[in-house]
Lab assay of single mutants.
Amino acid sequence: PDFTLHWNGITIHFKGIDEEQFRHLRELLDRGVSLEELEELAKELIK
């Protein structure tokens, strides 16, 4: 499924991740993950 997340004025689209992965990403963003960390995470998910 696809998810869209609005965070700090940025709209991020996640394609092909499951709800569990999306929930994990939201928790990280709510905790204050940096954009660099988010990019690293995205690379991991894409593999």
Rank of each mutant, 00 (worst) to 15 (best):
R26M: 14
W7I: 11
W7M: 11
H13G: 07
G16L: 05
D18L: 08
L41H: 04
A42N: 01
I46M: 09
I17V: 06
L45T: 05
K47T: 15
T4I: 12
K47E: 15
E20D: 11
E27T: 10
L45C: 07
E40T: 06
I12C: 07
I12T: 03
L28T: 05
E36I: 09
P1R: 12
D2N: 12
R26L: 15
F3M: 06
K15T: 15
F3T: 02
W7S: 12
E19V: 10
T4K: 10
G16I: 05
L45K: 01
F3V: 02
T11E: 09
L45F: 15
R31C: 02
R31P: 02
L28F: 08
D2E: 13
R23P: 03
G9A: 02
G32D: 03
T4E: 09
H6F: 07
E39C: 01
L41I: 15
K47P: 15
K47A: 15
T11D: 08
G32E: 04
H6C: 03
K47I: 15
H6R: 07
I10W: 02
F22A: 08
I46E: 14
E19Y: 11
I10M: 10
E37F: 04
R23M: 12
I46C: 04
Q21K: 07
K47Q: 15
L35Y: 08
A42G: 03
E36T: 08
K43E: 15
H13K: 09
R23S: 11
Q21E: 06
H13A: 10
E36W: 06
R26N: 10
R26G: 07
F3N: 03
F14L: 11
D30L: 12
V33E: 03
E36R: 10
I46T: 04
H24S: 11
L28P: 00
R31E: 09
L38M: 05
G16E: 09
E40F: 05
S34C: 01
L5H: 02
S34D: 07
E27R: 07
R23F: 12
G9V: 01
E44L: 05
R23A: 11
E37K: 08
L41D: 01
L5T: 02
Q21P: 01
V33H: 08
E20K: 13
L25P: 00
L38S: 00
E19N: 09
E39M: 15
G9Q: 04
E44V: 03
E36L: 09
E27L: 09
W7V: 11
E37R: 09
L29T: 02
G9N: 06
L25Q: 00
R26S: 12
K43H: 08
T11R: 04
I12V: 12
E37T: 09
I12E: 01
F3L: 07
D30T: 09
I46R: 03
R31M: 12
D30H: 13
H6A: 08
I12D: 00
